[in-house]
């Protein structure tokens, strides 16, 4: 895979950089890493980070240190669907432990592991700001809230279906 943003994405990159003062283009780093992660397979491989560094005219190490600091940046490959289930206090009070155990059992994977078909990665997460709608998980750009075992069954069926089409 060639690591290069499309012209359309490059327009977005330029628009993002223009939000910050002249010479402060490094401020665009986190937004650009989001863009790169979405574009290049859901995780940030070293060549991807180097590419972002070259766009912003900063050192690769400046990108690595940021990419490894923030939870949302994956520095290892993940499945097509990343199931990030909140396990912090308020979700725990409403049964997130059972939801995590159920997903482990159903998919046969542990925390941080990916199913052999490359579809699902389970990642227990810390508070995602949906405490009143617990238990919940983050899936891509959306939240799935008020989770139950039935909802997990339906979700996995739905995602398997989407992946096959």
């Amino acid at each position: 895979m060639e690591i290069r943003f499309s012209e359309e994405k490059m327009n977005k990159v330029r628009e993002i950089i223009a939000r910050y003062p002249e010479g402060k283009q490094k401020s665009a780093l986190i937004p650009l890493l989001h863009l790169a992660q979405d574009e290049f397979g859901g995780w940030l491989d070293v060549p991807v980070m180097d590419y972002v560094a070259s766009i912003l005219n900063i050192l690769p190490i400046e990108v690595y240190e940021v990419a490894t600091f923030y939870t949302m940046f994956n520095t290892k490959p993940v499945g097509k669907y990343l199931l990030e289930v909140c396990q912090t206090g308020p979700c725990m009070l409403n049964g997130s432990d059972d939801i995590i155990d159920y997903i482990k059992e159903k998919l046969g994977i542990g925390p941080g592991e990916t199913t052999p078909d490359g579809l699902f990665t389970l990642k227990p997460a810390e508070c995602l700001g949906a405490c009143g709608y617990a238990p919940m998980m983050q899936l891509g750009k959306t939240y799935r809230e008020h989770l139950t075992k039935e909802k997990i069954d339906a979700l996995i069926l739905e995602l398997r279906g989407a992946a096959n089409n």
Binding site: K24, S27, I30, L33, E62, E65, V66, F69, Y70, E126
Partner: peptide, 25 residues
């Protein structure tokens, strides 16, 4: 609108500022 990337510490105002500058929080 500037999106962070998952770091509670960036709610602390000086960490937020560092992060807005494209650094670790």
């Amino acid at each position: 609108v500037h999106r962070g990337a998952g770091a509670y510490i960036c709610g602390e105002e000086t960490a937020l500022i560092e992060s807005l500058e494209g650094k670790r929080g």
